[in-house]
């Protein structure tokens, strides 16, 4: 009978680590989920992600059909293709979930995010911030003599780029909504 000699870090081989983390590359996917807008539905979705160890990069939710009481949850997640398939299937099991679409897989889609940037500064830095905001087509929604608050809508990459530019110019804080997305074209996502 051998004594217990478990190598450090070997818990990554637990029976519950069923997926080989190196087998497939991780991909970023945007999921669009239509749900009944009822108490606890967001908790069910989030609980699924935390309970099964899936990632959430961004999540937005709001009621989109006031008469039908339906909300759209847009989730940006990352995982291997088989994990993404599992996430879709697991979301589909939730009783108040009506539709699950993988917008990344199902053809072209548009993604937009809104962000607010508070940038404090005076003199040249202030002028430069305003100039760059103009290039990015950001709106000024609040200003004082030593600060601007910009509103910017765009893809997450555009918002990242703007944040990078604002950082040396006195960026104080950022608020982002997370991604809202729809499929392109005239029809509903299938």
């Amino acid at each position: 009978m051998s004594a217990l000699k478990i190598k450090k870090g070997s818990t990554s081989h637990s029976a519950y680590q069923l997926r080989d983390p190196h087998a497939e590359a991780s991909e970023r996917h945007t999921l669009s989920v239509v749900v009944d807008n009822e108490a606890g539905v967001l908790a069910r979705v989030i609980g699924l992600f935390s309970g099964r160890g899936y990632n959430i990069e961004s999540l937005t939710v709001a009621e989109v059909d006031h008469t039908g009481h339906q909300s759209r949850i847009t989730i940006v997640t990352s995982g291997t293709p088989s994990v993404i398939d599992q996430i879709q299937a697991q979301l589909g099991r939730i009783v108040p979930v009506h539709e699950v679409h993988d917008l990344t897989d199902e053809g072209p889609s548009v993604e937009r995010e809104l962000a607010l940037f508070k940038v404090a500064g005076t003199g040249d830095r202030r002028v430069e911030a305003l100039r760059l905001a103009d290039i990015f087509r950001a709106n000024v929604v609040d200003s004082t003599l030593e600060s601007f608050t910009f509103e910017l809508t765009g893809t997450p990459e555009k918002i990242d780029a703007f944040a990078e530019l604002m950082r040396p110019l006195g960026l104080v804080e950022v608020a982002r909504t997370g991604v809202a997305a729809l499929s392109r074209g005239p029809q509903q996502a299938k």
């Binding site: 009978m1 051998s2 000699k5 478990i6 081989h13 519950y16």
Partner: peptide, 12 residues
């Protein structure tokens, strides 16, 4: 005798 190796020891 020695049927379960180190890798198997961490499984439930």
């Amino acid at each position: 005798e020695g049927a379960i190796e180190d890798g198997g020891a961490v499984l439930v």
